[in-house]
Structures are given as structure tokens and as C-alpha cells.
Design a protein around this nucleic acid. Sequence first.
DNA 1: GCCAACGTTGGC
DNA 2: GCCAACGTTGGC
Length: 157
Amino acid sequence: MDDKFMKYWLMKTEPNIFSWTDLEQKKIASWEGVRNYQARNYMRDQFQIGDKVLFYHSSCAEPGIAGIAKVVRGSYPDHTALDQNGEYFDLASQKSGQSRWVMVDLSPIKKFSRFASLTEIRQHASLQSMQLLRKGQRLSIQPVMEFEFAEIESTWG
DNA sequence: GCCAACGTTGGC
DNA sequence: GCCAACGTTGGC
């Protein structure tokens, strides 16, 4: 894979669990709880410090992108998989003695001047290639093309 | 709450 | 390795 095209990502979060506002308040946030192999592999194999992230609110009244964040720490073991009392506990990780999941750290760069709602993104002719718009697309971490990122930033940023 | 689409699990 | 059953995601 050409990593020229892998500098930009979209990451989904449920804002009632962790929102853009939470990220701004925390300044640096660890992205724990990803429990999907494809999403994990993106973080583990391709995330680099400085990569830019479209911060997407899902499963909420108005889904869409709230702002841009950046990767400030590359992948490291997601220890929440080993926390037996935590929400993200993973039996297979416990059995093997080490977490099979990873996480990264993010910091906010800027909040969009206008929230980029899914509805608006969908209406945007030059963004039809986005994975986000594909039917049945559930992956919580998705690669974004450079031109897609630029278009979104210039439209809503 | 509905439900389509997808990922994971586990019996065989 | 197949695939049915089950669980999850996430827009609507």
C-alpha cells in the first residue's frame, strides 16, 4: 500500500461515550477499545505520529465530523483488554497473557467552523469515493484519501 | 426500536 | 475450511 495515501484517517466515536469536546478537554486521549482486526491492523501497521484524523461522531442524533485531530503516539498494547472488570475486557487476551489489541494517542488540532454532517457529506459530489459513504460500512477506522481530506477541510474546516 | 450489513464463533 | 448462528454497528 502506498503510504502517501495513508496519512489521513477517519475515526468513529460515539459522542455520548467520547466526544470532540472530551478530546479538547483532555488534550491527549488514548484511543482504547477498538476490537476489530482490520481497524487494529491499520493502527498497528500504518499509523504514524503526525497522521491526521477526521473525528467522526456516530450513533447519535447528528452523525458527522466534528474536527481534525492528529496522532501523537503510535500503536501500543491496549491494556484495557486485560481489565477483567472493564468494559473492554477480552478473554482471549487474558488467556494468552498479553493484549491482542492496540491503541494510539490523539490530540485535537482544530474544531470545524461548521459541523460536517453525514447528510452534507453525502451530498458532496467529490466525496462519493469515501469509504464512509459505502453501504454497510461499519469499520471504525478508515483510511481517507488526501484529496478527500483536503476537500473536507476546505469545506467545513 | 428496526433492520441491513457485516464480523466472529464454533461445530462439524 | 465451511457455514449457520449469533452478536454488533450505526443510520434512520
